[in-house]
Structure formats: structure tokens, C-alpha cells
């Protein structure tokens, strides 16, 4: 498995890490910066991570996925720092002999990452900014 917190997402690297002669399917999920949230125009996002713990949590999730599905390759990259509209901020990749396992594991990995991995996003609008999910 290849797990990292990076300044810039590298999709080519992720794809190379997933390639395997025994894999007949490769899934790549790319999360990007959207230009709106809750009806407001978003101007940029800033990501922050507690890096050692984030890596540890990502590894736990990856191990769970490997136990649940027969995966050939697994990639989790998350970016930190300032990101502009359209930029990739997270890439989750899986490869397996048959596509079902890759699709299911990829979905599981991004859903779990969003629940437990200590990474925070601040959304900037034209007039203010908020830490996403911080308040009810």
C-alpha cells in the first residue's frame, strides 16, 4: 500500500503504483475543490493535517480494506495547504483482478477517510471562511 500526505497530488504516480500484471481493473477516485458550498461561492480551500496520526489512521483503514477485498494495489494520497478551485485534494486508488473489489474498496476507503482521519478543511468565501463540520 502507498499512503501519503503531500503538497501536490500526483495522479500519474498513483496510477503507476496501482498497476499490476494480475490486476484487471484499476479504480481512481479524485476529490477536487468545488466552487460552491451551502449556496455560497467558494474561492479556495486550505487543508491541515495532524500528519503522524493521519498516516496511522489511513493505514488502519487500508488494512481493513485489504482484509475485506482481494486487492492488488492500494493508494491513498491527501494534500495539505492552499488549494484552488478544480485542484485535486485527495486520490484513492485500488486495483484488483476483477473490478467489483476495486469499486467497493475504493468507495469504502474514501468514506472512512472522511470519518476518522485527522485532516481539516477551511472553506473560504468572498466575505468569510469556516472550518467545515466544526459546528452543528
Amino acid at each position: 500500500m502507498h499512503i501519503s500526505i503531500v503538497d501536490q497530488i500526483d495522479l500519474n504516480e498513483a496510477y503507476q503504483q496501482l498497476q499490476s500484471d494480475s490486476a484487471g481493473g484499476v479504480n481512481l477516485f479524485v476529490g477536487t475543490v468545488r466552487d460552491h458550498a451551502q449556496g455560497k461561492q467558494v474561492t479556495k480551500l486550505v487543508f491541515e493535517a495532524y500528519v503522524p496520526m493521519a498516516l496511522k489512521q489511513m493505514e488502519k483503514i487500508a488494512l481493513q480494506a485489504q482484509q475485506q477485498w482481494p486487492l492488488e494495489g492500494l493508494v491513498m494520497q491527501h494534500a495539505v495547504g492552499e488549494k484552488q478551485i478544480g485542484e485535486p485534494v485527495v486520490v484513492i486508488g485500488t486495483s484488483s483482478a476483477h473490478r467489483d473489489a476495486s469499486f467497493a474498496a475504493c468507495r469504502f476507503l474514501i468514506d472512512e477517510l472522511k470519518k476518522t482521519v485527522p485532516i481539516w478543511k477551511k472553506e473560504y468565501y468572498q466575505d468569510n471562511s469556516v472550518w467545515v463540520n466544526a459546528h452543528p
Binding site: M53, H78, V90, I119, W120, W131
Partner: peptide
């Protein structure tokens, strides 16, 4: 020891 407010990665 670290404080972990609601996470919002991805």
C-alpha cells in the same frame, strides 16, 4: 496529546 476537532478531509 492532541485535540481533534471534527474532521473534514477529502
Amino acid at each position: 496529546v492532541a485535540l481533534i476537532p471534527p474532521v473534514s478531509g477529502g
